[in-house]
Nucleic acid binder design. Structure first.
Lengths: 144, 144
DNA sequence: CTGAATCCATGAGGATACTG
DNA sequence: CAGTATCCTCATGGATTCAG
């Protein structure tokens, strides 16, 4: 057990680990889909636009490993695999939704701040520098 | 109103974007550090163990851009730059702490699930694939 | 002290093909 | 249907160097 400077550091490691865990590209999508009802593999695949077979498989395996979903196989002739959210997985939905509410409530503020920052950067920076029309990403992180 | 984001698909994109945004390696650390009090660059650098100069700089730029922190420069002889959490940044601390509470409350469950999964995987794997020397007298819980 | 610029290692994730 | 295996690309981020 290591100790940091303050309790912030210690608590942060845990939050950070959780965020890293569920902060990947597909985990939240899958969890929220399964939050509605259990689904089969290809059903998820169809509902989550853009996910590759490989990544959906990897994501589900990770979720199963961490106890967020249950994978139940029915040995029918065409294999049928259902993924169900566990109670642990459902409980995670609560803080995730809280974060979603925050995002929804502050989306405009963030976008405004971004636009303002980019605008000021474009004009107040070095005068003789390449004009950068920085506008491409709307809500996507630029480095995160 | 229920949760702010009604539709799973639509709401998910927003949650996912936020998670991706703050789910990187240092953002949460920085936000929570600044949640205690404003700090200078090297003070943050010292307090956040393992962060490189480059990443701290990039993280702070991103946070400033999104309106989470204010960067104030005092033109002293050795430059002094203070980073302060804005109200928007402080508000983000709320759902982040909620997620932290969840993580703290369910840490054991996740670890247990992981350990169980890894244990089962290690012994119930494909028989004739990995040369496992016949698996003599390992703790062999009956599959199924 | 506070950065920016450059180089480089690693890994997440996409495309494709194959299996049971 | 439900995956696994392989290859490949590119973003993340660490180390180092340069600058104001």
């Amino acid at each position: 057990m290591e100790q940091g400077n303050t309790d912030v550091t210690g608590g942060c490691q845990l939050v950070k680990a959780t965020l890293t865990r569920i902060g990947d590209k597909w985990t939240i999508l899958v969890i929220r889909m399964l939050g509605e009802r259990p689904m089969r593999f290809n059903e998820l695949r169809r509902k989550i636009d853009g996910v590759s077979q490989r990544m959906l498989s990897l994501t589900l395996r990770g979720l199963e490993r961490d106890g967020f979903v249950i994978r139940s196989v029915r040995p029918t002739v065409p294999p049928q695999v259902d993924y169900t959210l566990t109670e642990l997985g459902t409980s995670l939905l609560v803080p995730v939704r809280a974060l979603g509410d925050w995002a929804f409530a502050h989306e405009a503020q963030v976008e405004a701040a971004r636009a303002r920052y980019d605008r000021l950067q474009g004009q107040a920076a070095v005068p003789a520098l390449t004009a950068k029309t920085g506008d491409p990403d709307e809500l996507a992180p630029h480095f995160g």
